[in-house]
């Protein structure tokens, strides 16, 4: 940690992330992590009475956010980790916030560059402080674009190479499997998750790209069913087939595919839970659970 003053709402989160050890801040009653095992994942009938839930996933709602409720559903109803929508005009994050999620959509209509307006929403200053304090921030699709616009992630998302919006299920190869975003996966694992975007072609200047690769910041790449990363499996012209990247510190992750649309076996499959569930695990592991 730096010796910079940590803003109040960010301090709460320091407790949350395993990266910094387990510290309890605020009034949260911490329960040993093992007990969390009983309510991991979705669906088991033995969990009729869920334990009280304190950990909080703040899903930011910009005007024009579209997958905000789906994201809340994925965390709240499927992963049983409480999530709430946070209106973009809020100057601060809710104090219990343990992770921030920027959902997909067309914030402010994306009439300017995608995500260019949203970075000026009042809440984004708080999100930036949260991220700078080491809090986990996940950006999906438009959320990824917003993170790039705010400078929390390097690079930019350009218009798809074929100039069409594209909605389809794609395969993704996991390049790094670690907390807080990909601990439920294994390096080299192939995930099937949909994309839906018009401006999803990842771009970074050559030096930047080299740095990303050298630091292992590339988290996901578009690939084929067998995990081969090639031109044919690149749906939008992203450089090096990049589908998702993390910042150097590893606490900010942006990806174009939509894990929240792959959280139920009969609707889109469950590969998205591997990503979102990793974040839930990280928050719980840090004592943010219950």
């Amino acid at each position: 940690m730096t010796n910079r003053t940590i803003p109040r709402e960010s301090a709460h989160f320091v407790a949350a992330l395993g990266l910094f050890g387990r510290v309890c801040v605020g009034k949260l009653a911490l329960v040993p992590v093992e007990e969390d095992e009983q309510f991991q994942g979705a669906g088991s009938k033995s969990r009729l009475v869920p334990p009280p839930r304190f950990q909080l996933f703040s899903v930011i709602q910009f005007p024009g956010s579209l997958d905000d409720r789906d994201m809340r559903f994925a965390f709240d109803s499927v992963l049983k980790a409480s999530a709430q929508l946070v209106w973009h005009k809020e100057p601060e994050l809710p104090p219990q916030t343990r992770a921030v999620v920027l959902p997909g959509g067309f914030s402010y209509g994306d009439y300017l560059r995608c995500g260019a307006m949203a970075q000026y929403s009042p809440v984004m200053a708080a999100v930036r402080r949260f991220a700078e304090a080491g809090g986990p921030v996940l950006g999906v699709c438009n959320g990824f674009q917003v993170l790039c616009e705010t400078g929390l992630l390097p690079g930019a998302l350009l218009r798809n190479q074929n100039l069409h919006f594209g909605c389809e299920f794609v395969h993704l190869r996991v390049e790094r499997a670690n907390p807080p975003f990909t601990s439920r996966t294994a390096a080299g694992q192939v995930l099937r998750i949909p994309i839906k975007n018009g401006e999803g072609a990842y771009f970074a200047a050559p030096q930047e790209l080299a740095r990303l690769e050298a630091n292992g910041q590339v988290v996901l790449r578009y690939c084929d069913e067998s995990g081969t990363v090639d031109e044919a499996s690149n749906p939008n012209g992203s450089l090096a087939n990049i589908a998702g990247i993390a910042n150097e510190r590893g606490n900010v992750f942006g990806l174009m595919p939509h894990p929240e649309h792959a959280v139920e076996a009969a609707i889109g499959g469950t590969d998205g839970l591997l990503l979102l569930g990793s974040l839930v695990d990280a928050v719980r592991a840090a004592g943010g659970g219950r």
Partner: peptide
């Protein structure tokens, strides 16, 4: 392919079949 077929998370049968099928959400979402 140029249409978002998935948003709101309830598309059971996507375009390409005979009929589309969606799941219905209740008053609590």
């Amino acid at each position: 392919r140029q249409y978002d077929q998935l948003v709101q998370g309830d598309t059971v049968i996507r375009p390409g079949g005979d009929a589309a099928l969606i799941r219905v959400r209740g008053r609590d979402g």
